[in-house]
Write a protein that binds this DNA or RNA. Sequence first.
DNA 1: TAATATCGACAACGTGATTGACGAAAAGGT
DNA 2: ACCTTTTCGTCAATCACGTTGTCGATATTA
Lengths: 167, 167
Amino acid sequence: MAERGVEPGARSSAGGGAGFELPLLLFAGFRSIIDELHRELAEHGHPDVRPAYGFALQAVGRDGATASEIGRRLGVSKQAAGKTVEKLEGLGYVERVDDPRDGRRKLVRLTARGIDVLVRSAEGFDRLRAEWVRVLGADRVRAMEADLRAMAPASAFRLDAAGWFND
Amino acid sequence: MAERGVEPGARSSAGGGAGFELPLLLFAGFRSIIDELHRELAEHGHPDVRPAYGFALQAVGRDGATASEIGRRLGVSKQAAGKTVEKLEGLGYVERVDDPRDGRRKLVRLTARGIDVLVRSAEGFDRLRAEWVRVLGADRVRAMEADLRAMAPASAFRLDAAGWFND
DNA sequence: TAATATCGACAACGTGATTGACGAAAAGGT
DNA sequence: ACCTTTTCGTCAATCACGTTGTCGATATTA
C-alpha cells in the first residue's frame, strides 16, 4: 500500500481512511486546541506565552522547583531548563529565590502572573473541551479520550513535547 | 499552555475529564504512532529517518519538486528547504537533477531508497491504524477520524509540523 | 528590448537544544 | 572529623534548524 503522493487513491476502502491520515488528524486536533488557547491567552494579557513556556510553567508547579528538577520533568538538560527559566523570569512569570536550607539550590517559583496564566490556561482548556462537547456530543468526546488513553503508552503521555520532533 | 496542578479537581464535572487532558491525549496518540513508525523504519534499513525528514520526503512527491516548491508545501523558506534537501541527498533519499527546460531549476526527485521509505511508511501507517482497529474496533476509529476532521480546521491539517511548537 | 519575477546559493544571524567542565555546597561512608 | 561522591547552577563551545537579506543566472512579461 502506499499513501499520498506515492500511490494516491487505491485505498480508503471500507476501513475508513488511509493510515497516514490518523496521525495527521491527531496532530491537527492537538494543534488547533493549542493554537486557540494561545490566541485567547494573547487577548488576555499574555501575548508572549508560547507553547513551550506553558509546558515549562507546568513543570514548575505550585510548590516551585529547581532548574535541574524542571529539566528532569521536561526531559531536557538542566542547562536548557535554566535558560528557559531565565526567559520566564524576564517575562515575569517566575522568580528565583535562594534556598536558605541548601546553598546550591535556587528555587524557581511562580509569580502571581505565572499563576494567572496557568489558571487562564486551565479555564481555556475546559472551555475548548466544552466546545468539542457542544459540537460532537459528550459521549463522543469521552469515547475519544478513553480510546486515546487505551492506545497511547504512558511513555508518550508526557510533558516533553518541545523539541521532540527533531529528535 | 497548561494548568494541571494549579486547580486540581474543581473541574471535570459531568463532561468526563479535565480539559487539559484532551490535547495531551491527542498529542500522545500522534506521538505514539510516529514513534512506533520510526522504530519500524529503523529496523528495516532506515535508521536515519527522522519525523521531519518524513514530512519533507512527502513534500517531494512522486513527480519531484524544486526546493522552493518544497519550502512552500512545508511552510518554510526556500533556503530552509534547500538545506533539508541537502541532508536528504546526503542520506541517499533524493537526488537533484538540472531541469533541461528551465536553467534555474534543479528538480529534486526521490531515489529508489526514497520511494522505499515512503512505501514502508505507508504500510506502517496502515498497519498501525489496523492495530487501533483491532483494539478499539473499526467504528470507534472511524468515529475518531470523523470527529477530528470536524474539529480541526483545515489550517491545522498540514505538513508543517516541525518547528511549529516554538513559534 | 527592458522590466519584473523566480530559482538556487551564500552569508550572517537567532534560538533552543546539546555536552563538557567547573566551583560551591550537601550528603554519605569510614 | 575527613574524604569521597553527588548535586546544583553556571560558563563555554557546539550543533541543528530556522530566519532575513543578497546575489547572479535565467524565465517571463509588458
